[in-house]
Design a protein around this nucleic acid. Structure first.
Lengths: 113, 113
DNA sequence: AAAATACTTAGGTCAATAGCTAACTATAGG
DNA sequence: CCTATAGTTAGCTATTGACCTAAGTATTTT
């Protein structure tokens, strides 16, 4: 069930950069080649390629080369695994409030003065 | 609406570390003091304090000092803002599949052989 | 075949991160 | 008042990260 644990470090790290988040955002709208993805970013190609490599090593992006062109697509599963972590925390947080809630209800019931 | 944008870098960066994610996870279950949070981590206190500072600067954690003790609590809003980013991407990704889906449906309708 | 395109590799700089120890400050408890 | 506790500050080191330029490879395109 928690197979995804231990792989979150590289995913969060990959997403902690605006260039890389923009790439993910772009790829969520469809596949693209490296140079197409790179165009909006004011950066030398080798620098940009490193960002793609970081995303790929995090498992967020899958690439394949066809001729001299490299195509990239998003691996949505990885993104979902990461989102699941947030859901976990939110549940813990909320159940804490639920407990607090019932505690308050009990106190009110016990001290109706 | 997208007030949270531009603040995601430090949040993702903060979460790209297992120690800090463990702290968030712990705080989701309730407030705690710095030394209580530090106990499970095999690390010198000053090192651990830096992690807390990173979380605090990312806005994920709020601290207050009472006497010689510093109490920490989670700022769930920041966590939620981050989770919202994933939801955004997922929506874009899904709507892309919806489009593909209706395209396929159209093709099937148009070519019943 | 020559030239343009789309990466790739190599190597270098500079700043930021994660960790440490040692020494200090400010409470709390006895 | 003295000691233990809880955190803080300062300063050092090693690694990683984000860029760059220059030069190389592999594929089209002309």
């Amino acid at each position: 069930m928690d197979n995804y644990r231990g792989q979150l470090d590289p995913v969060f790290h990959a997403l902690a950069d605006p260039t890389r988040r923009a790439v993910v955002q772009q790829l969520a709208r469809g596949e693209a080649t490296v140079s197409h993805l790179a165009k909006p970013h004011a950066m030398a190609l080798p620098s940009f390629m490193k960002h793609v490599a970081v995303l790929e090593q995090a498992g967020l992006v899958v690439t394949r080369k066809s001729g001299r062109v490299r195509h990239c697509r998003l691996n949505a599963e990885r993104l979902a695994a990461c989102e699941a972590w947030f859901a976990d925390q939110r549940l813990a947080w909320q159940s804490r409030f639920d407990q607090l809630d019932s505690l308050l209800t009990e106190l009110q019931a016990g001290e109706p003065t």
